[in-house]
């Protein structure tokens, strides 16, 4: 049992979903604001945006123990993929996006990193029992 615990399933799930939607929104912004839009970028952003939105939706479907948890897992996979992929994309030269090579001072990218870290942080707190997600119950009665 953890020495810090919260019983805020809706608040935690809302916050995590906000982080995922932030991640999706920033990818949408990238798509819209990009001067060059190579095909793979469109596909990648599309996958991220749709994936995040679906994950968000799943976290609110409290039908059993599996569906909302699957939403969290999907979100975690997307965030981890971004957290690994984005730094790599800064180090290699992306075809069709040569202007961005080696640049870390990209506000959308850093803000998206912050969103991914926030989501993963919240997910870890749920996994460790510090928080409960929507659909889970605290068995507190003293």
């Amino acid at each position: 049992m953890t020495s810090i615990a919260f019983n805020l399933p809706r608040t935690v799930t809302l916050a995590a979903d906000a982080a995922l939607l932030g991640l999706a929104g920033l990818h949408a912004y990238m798509l819209v604001a990009a001067v060059h839009r190579p095909g793979y970028l469109v596909v990648y952003c599309g996958v991220m945006i749709i994936g995040c939105v679906v994950a968000v939706g799943a976290t609110w479907i409290d039908v059993d123990d599996i569906v909302p948890a699957a939403g969290w897992v999907a979100g975690a996979i997307l965030c981890m993929a971004f957290m690994i992929g984005y730094p790599i994309s800064r180090m290699v030269s992306l075809p069709g996006l040569s202007a961005l090579t080696g640049r870390w001072d990209l506000a959308p990218g850093n803000l998206a990193l912050a969103c991914a870290v926030a989501f993963l942080g919240l997910y870890l707190t749920v996994l460790f029992g510090v928080n409960v997600a929507f659909g889970q119950r605290r068995g507190w009665y003293d």
């Binding site: 049992m1 953890t2 020495s3 810090i4 615990a5 919260f6 019983n7 805020l8 507190w140 009665y141 003293d142």
Partner: peptide, 20 residues
């Protein structure tokens, strides 16, 4: 009311068979 807290900063669990 016991059990209705939104945050808890303790590991202690209270007994159910005795007044605490």
């Amino acid at each position: 009311a016991p059990g209705t807290e939104w945050a808890r900063f303790t590991r202690k669990v209270m007994p159910t068979n005795k007044l605490y």
